[in-house]
Write a protein that binds this DNA or RNA. Structure first.
Lengths: 148, 148
DNA sequence: GGTGATAGTTAGCATTGCGAACTATCATGT
DNA sequence: ACATGATAGTTCGCAATGCTAACTATCACC
């Protein structure tokens, strides 16, 4: 299945294909996902764990979402006791959010066992294909991170 | 950049990573560029063009969406004059939708030049990385198509 | 002609993104 | 000290997009 090297890549075509593939896959994942947590919250929680304590503003920048959206996400995560908010002692405007043990546990549990839909489908792929998807995930992350 | 072959693939971890990456990328794409038609409508329109005249039910199956969602999408596309509905002459329950010249024009225009955001970012990648993304798109399509 | 299956619609809900406008706090210049 | 403007976060309301449940209309079949 490994295609021969391509001399010239058709960028617009790749862009169109990728857009539709990613969009459709995301739609499926949103509604097939179990995990007990929505993709939006999961992504935010993962970011908070990965970067340690951070302000809502920093979270917004990382997730590429606007501040009002962040407010709601942080509120939801806090209500689920997955994160904790503490006010900044020096600057009364800012607050800090960090993951709680509960949040960490959920995150790890989700990572380990709760992705049945996706895992089932991944199981049918070859190691090469899995490798490709892993690399692609990393590339997508880097790509969408690149404009700040 | 090409990682060494991995003996055992951590499937759940890959699933979690992929879920988050795809989700975040989709979110970025949804709110970037465009100006004219939403990703949902675009994907549906592309399917209708690709498969020729089809019933709303067939569209639902293809896009993996439910019938009420299809009703709304078809309604929106028809209102924009991008598709046309005609009743089935033999079966009073079914109707057929097909793309109009206007719809085809929009679709092609969008394909050609509306992906500036994505193309810009793709431009910064190496040919290897582009190849990986192209392969990944194909794998994702195959993977999400596989359960009907 | 009655019964159950099928195609599509309507109604209502939840999630998740946005922008505009607001509050509270801080920093700065006079 | 204090007005002015910048910054962090919130509230509000809107729009898109998915769902389920329940409905209508039509068909297929005995």
């Amino acid at each position: 299945m490994t295609a021969a090297p391509v001399p010239t890549v058709d960028l617009p075509a790749l862009a169109a294909d990728l857009r539709i593939s990613v969009f459709r896959t995301a739609r499926r994942l949103r509604y097939q996902g179990d995990a007990g947590i929505t993709p939006t919250l999961l992504a935010a929680l993962a970011t908070i764990e990965q970067h340690g304590p951070m302000t809502p503003g920093a979270l917004a920048a990382h997730e590429h979402i606007r501040k009002p959206t962040t407010t709601r996400i942080v509120g939801s995560l806090a209500e689920l006791a997955l994160i904790e908010r503490t006010p900044d002692p020096l600057d009364g405007r800012v607050s800090w959010v960090q993951i709680t043990p509960t949040g960490r546990k959920l995150l790890h549990r989700v990572r380990r066992r709760h992705d049945a839909y996706l895992s089932d489908r991944l199981k049918r792929l070859t190691p090469d294909e899995l490798q490709t998807l892993g690399n692609a995930a990393e590339i997508l992350d880097r790509m969408t991170e690149a404009d700040r």
